[in-house]
């Protein structure tokens, strides 16, 4: 790679990750660490979405399908088969990736694009949700409870910081991966397919293969987020794992942060969840009681404002304000 450490894109990633890694030394409160851990899980799920939609232009409205697959796989592997969660994790990620391949094969082979693809992914997530809610194997509506046994060997940490650092290492890996992909031949094909699929195909790009590769990676990454979620809360049910809200969050974060940028999902997740907390606290203070849903109203407004005025999200705005700011976009 040409360019120095700071300009080739890897430098900023390492700096941001290092800054995030020392953060727990500043805040030791459990609630803050819980919040930060959750932000990283959402970031990871959003990074999966961003790879497929931001770079590949395939807008999924059903990333909960992968998130839930990862969450249920790691939970059921322990509860039903007594597998160690560390062994179950790669299994869960592979299952998410496989789900991506199958879902992608079915929908891309049928040449579903745009709104049609969004609808199909949404429907898949709903089918999984209903099945998980009805099947005895998945614990039905009662969900799955992962037995509490706090041991690092059992993927349960006494120190909340350990979980945070683990989640951060996943996010860091995907940041590097995304940046690497953006600058690779595969990344160029992906962007070509996003910009004009017919033209890309005319130039000899195997669009189906490129999209399949993207959705496989995307499914695996988002499934990792689901697995982390299950291990963090030690409980999942169909609505938590496959609920439409997961799909929406995986899509909101990159759009608000900067769709198709390396840092978009991270910036968006921090901003979104931070703003959510502030809104909730503000209205609780204002009204003397919680106002459910008000944070989501703000998210909705933010989504529309972003689409209308900041098509490249916060990262795009920053770049417009400071032309020298480079975030390693393809």
């Amino acid at each position: 790679m040409k360019g120095g450490f700071l300009t080739n894109g890897y430098g900023p990633i390492l700096i941001v990750v290092a800054a995030l890694a020392v953060l727990p030394f500043g805040f030791s409160a459990n609630t803050t660490l819980n919040f930060l851990g959750f932000v990283l899980i959402v970031t990871l799920a959003a990074q999966g979405w961003n790879l497929l939609a931001g770079y590949g232009g395939q807008f999924s409205f059903g990333h909960a399908a992968f998130f839930g697959m990862g969450a249920y796989a790691i939970a059921l592997a322990q509860v039903r088969f007594g597998l160690n969660p560390w062994l179950a994790l790669p299994l869960a990620i592979s299952l998410g990736a496989l789900t991506g391949t199958i879902l992608g094969y079915l929908s891309f082979r049928a040449r579903l694009r745009g709104s049609y693809f969004a609808l199909v992914t949404l429907a898949f997530a709903e089918v999984f949700r209903i099945l998980a809610n009805a099947s005895a194997f998945t614990g039905g509506a009662a969900g799955v409870l992962i037995p509490l046994r706090i041991e690092a060997a059992n993927f349960q940490f006494a120190d909340k910081r350990s979980f945070y650092w683990l989640a951060l290492s996943f996010v860091a890996f995907v940041l590097l991966l995304t940046h690497w992909i953006a600058r690779s031949r595969f990344g160029a094909y992906l962007v070509a397919v996003r910009e004009n699929e017919d033209a890309a195909r005319a130039l000899g790009v195997d669009a189906l293969a490129v999209k399949l590769k993207a959705i496989t990676l995307s499914g695996g990454i988002t499934a990792a987020a689901g697995s982390l979620y299950a291990q963090k809360f030690l409980y999942i049910d169909a609505n938590l794992a496959f609920g439409p809200w997961i799909s929406v969050e995986a899509l909101l974060a990159p759009i608000i942060g900067g769709i198709g940028t390396v840092f978009g999902p991270l910036a968006g997740a921090v901003l979104l969840l931070g703003l959510g907390e502030i809104t909730k606290t503000f209205f609780t203070w204002l009204l003397g009681g919680a106002l459910p849903g008000i944070d989501l109203v703000v998210f909705g407004v933010l989504l529309i404002l972003c689409v209308a005025f900041a098509p490249r999200g916060v990262i795009g705005l920053l770049r417009r304000l400071a032309p020298s700011f480079r975030g390693g976009r393809a």
């Binding site: 969004a118 989501l296 407004v301 529309i304 689409v307 209308a308």
Partner: peptide, 26 residues
């Protein structure tokens, strides 16, 4: 808001649905 782009229309209508649903919830 959508500048005539199909993907954007999808997102804007999604945003409207989030707003309506949660305002009703509130």
């Amino acid at each position: 808001a959508s500048h005539g782009d199909d993907g954007n229309i999808l997102l804007v209508t999604l945003g409207i649905s989030i707003i309506i649903e949660n305002a009703l919830l509130a």
